[in-house]
Design a protein around this nucleic acid. Sequence first.
RNA 1: GCCGCCUUAGCUCAGCCGGUAGAGCGGCGCAUUCGUAAUGCGUAGGUCGGGUGUUCGAGUCACCCAGGCGGCACCA
Length: 657
Amino acid sequence: MIDLIFPDGSQRQFDDGVTGRAIAGSISKSLEKKAVLVKLDGELLDLDRPLARGGRFEILTRESPEALETIRHDVSHIMAEAVQELFPGTQVTIGPAIEDGFYYDFARDEPFSLDDLPKIEQRMKEIVERDEPIKREVWDRDEAIRHFESIGERYKAEIIRDLPEDEEISVYRQGSWKDLCLGPHLPSTRAAGKAFKLTKLAGAYWRGDHRNPQLQRIYGTAWASEAELDAYLHRLEEAEKRDHRKIGQAMDLFHFQEEGRGMAFWHPKGWTLYRTLVAYMRRRMEAAGYQEVKTPQLLDRSLWERSGHWDKFHSDMFVCETDEGEVLAVKPMNCPGHVQIFNHGQRSYRELPIRLAEFEGLHRYESSGSLHGLLRVRQLAQDDAHVFCREDQVESETRDFVRLLNLVYADLGVELHAVKLALRPEVRAGSDEMWDRAEAMLERAARDVGLEFEILPGEGGFYAPKLEFHLRDAIGRTWQCGTLQLDMVMPERLDASYIGEDGLKHRPVMLHRAIFGSIERFLGVLIEHYAGAFPLWLAPVQLVVATITSDADDYAREAAAALQAKGLRVELDLRNEKVGYKVREHSLAKTPVIAVVGRREAEQRQVALRRLGSDRQQLMGLDDAANALASEASPPDLARQAAGALAPRTAVVREAG
RNA sequence: GCCGCCUUAGCUCAGCCGGUAGAGCGGCGCAUUCGUAAUGCGUAGGUCGGGUGUUCGAGUCACCCAGGCGGCACCA
């Protein structure tokens, strides 16, 4: 007998080997009909799986949020069955559920075409209607290998071979089709429903390794109901409208062209946005005790060899050779340069921490296939800084950094969503002892400052473990932007040292940190976050003064000048067009404020303000409007300062050790 | 880099089965001076990403190259 505890707290006994279906049936006929899965101590199991032990037990219907992943997994199997029916000779590999949907990787010589997708979808729907029962079977390992090889499924046979010896080999049969799978699955194909759609074709490497053969991946999305599917497709459309590449084009912010792949041409408006953002960060960092520096764009190969970058990254760097035979690399990052500044002269423990910041351009030879608008470029700049400090300062530096990061994200209207601690990767510089210490120190600092974080083994940087800061945008997508890396390797390799209280040389710890990360990328994220409708302080054009008739031209010029004199970024629209036309055009251009002036405003020395997204008008005296808008347009940090909330920090020449 | 798809006026896009290119927006000109998301009329823009081939004839078919897009791999 086994004891099952139900969600309502009641407890019942059942015979060994009882199935979820039988239990559901013992409760009610309707539940038996609706049940698709069971959950035993948190583990999802097939409805017809005999239960061998007791525990906390729950019967799930297909409406349950937890069943959704299984629905998607089932749909991926249904797709595989459809593909094998339609395209005999295609081998199956794996097909998991993923966020919002599923995919399945197939091996087939002939490529699938986009036109095949509707056919496959059609066949999938037929399979759902066939209501094929899905049954779990446990097979003998060798027999399974032999079976899959005999039917030409080499990848499946390989998967079984690589499974641990003691693992049960489960095969799921759905109708006459079968697949090696861990499960669980719904009781029949009908339960998967038809709220699915195949979305894209892609290449993918077998087992995610580019040395392996490339398979054909078909992606799809699947939901419990048509309504949810429609809502998802609608979300996709909305996300597409926010695409920073489209908005960048429409708002005339930047462009790319063939001759400069992965390198943005920033137009006046885009560059204004860029500079506004960077100016904001400069002030923040200066207030937080960072010192800005500038280091060479090109540095001799020997320095990159010493830093360790040449070994690991030289094929990802732009390298040039002079007539005299020097080999120079365009800097892909600032760290080695900053160490040179740190190393220049002798450092005392009393000077630490030294925080060196740089916003200069970096170049990385990113592979052609990875370029993606502003999100992945070859030329970029970062809000980059390196903090050289003593080990006992790591915690307070981490604390200050996290505080700054939170403040910055709040100012920009984004939300810190998650923190992750990425530990040593397989390929890395530095000894294991160093990594042990660096990881322990960073983890401890993160805990001490009260961060909650997930640990990502193997995801760390080349020479340092890192804390990743993921933010969430307006439509719920997350982006990794901020980073804090604790590096003991580069100070060692580049021989950075300071004189301690004991008069001896010590190695500083080097913290690599950024809040935006790549500024290009961050701007891409911000453009999508705001869908181009930036808050007033960031908007490239903050205000347009638009006339109704030419009678108001002179006054409009005067008004624009007055607004401009207050530091506002103003455009003047005197064109011979109707106001409706001008309002529409500037609204589409996402101008935050339109100041309309006609004869009445000219006579009264007023402006009629119209905010983006609203059709209301606010009539104000010109001087009042200029003052109000100017204060509204001041960047959040300056606004706080003006409000007296934050006194400007005076530079400390030397703190007591 | 790998797989698939795409590449037509400044922008967004239409051009079926091969017979030497269209629309809307934008630009320019003229008229209109019109009170908050598109005033009317007129006009100028392209040889169809680049190349080779098939064909009497190619934007339309085939192949090669480049770029873009969607993934994969990579990401200091």
